[in-house]
């Protein structure tokens, strides 16, 4: 053996619970709309980003806007703007997550709901970019996983991805969705 030391870290272990253990759908778009903006009317719009705009999103949010299009629902009640509902996807280490974020007319996050959570293990990895990111890394790589140490506020990787995603959605709202 070399002079390397063996270090040990506690890591969170994903435990999947529920009748559909490997994929769970929590909310449809309609259900997310009703939960996050109860009683509102929704107008659907599609944002299309040029590559320059995607660069600007990345510069402001610190994370890449992967898709060139984004569907957004504008929520109104009696003609008054309530906010926007944005549906986005992120890929974690083991999971593929679709989530809804509600942003109020004042630009504040009103709520985040996971709409669907899928285990990516077993040939379900849909995103090549994700694969690349982890090529050559294993569960024992400390520099990716050190922050995954199970604790009360050190976010796990995929959860951090969602929080980064929300940051990006806030930037999109600031840039493209004005009251």
């Amino acid at each position: 053996m070399s002079a390397h030391r063996w270090n040990a870290f506690f890591l969170p272990v994903a435990v999947l619970a529920g009748p559909t253990a490997y994929a769970t759908d929590y909310l449809t778009v309609a259900q997310a709309q009703e939960q996050l903006f109860p009683g509102a009317q929704f107008g659907e719009q599609t944002l299309k980003f040029s590559s320059d705009q995607r660069d600007r999103i990345k510069a402001a949010a610190g994370v890449r806007q992967r898709n060139e299009e984004m569907k957004v629902w504008r929520a109104e009640k009696n003609g008054k703007l309530q906010g926007w509902l944005m549906v986005d996807e992120v890929i974690g280490k083991h999971e593929f997550i679709t989530y809804a974020t509600a942003i109020g007319a004042d630009g504040k996050v009103l709520g985040i709901e996971i709409m669907s959570y899928r285990e990516t293990h077993g040939g379900q990895v849909r995103e090549q970019a994700w694969r690349k990111q982890f090529v050559g890394k294993t569960v024992s790589d400390p520099f990716k996983l050190d922050q995954d140490i199970q604790n009360i506020s050190g976010a796990t990787l995929s959860c951090r991805n969602v929080m980064d995603g929300v940051k990006r959605l806030l930037v999109v709202q600031q840039m493209f969705l004005k009251a």
Binding site: S2, A3, H4, R5, W6, N7, A8, F9, F10, L11, P12, V13, V15, L16, A17, A21, Y22, E119, H121, G122, V139, S140, D141, P142, F143, L145, D146, I149, Q150
Partner: peptide, 29 residues
């Protein structure tokens, strides 16, 4: 890999993974 691990009823369950790693740059914890 994922494997079934029984059924939980009126109880609590927790898991921790301890990963061993050979690394000089990261402090032991």
């Amino acid at each position: 890999g994922i494997r079934p691990h029984g059924v939980l009823r009126n109880a609590a369950f927790a898991s921790s993974q301890v990963a061993a790693m050979r690394d000089d740059s990261f402090p032991a914890d």
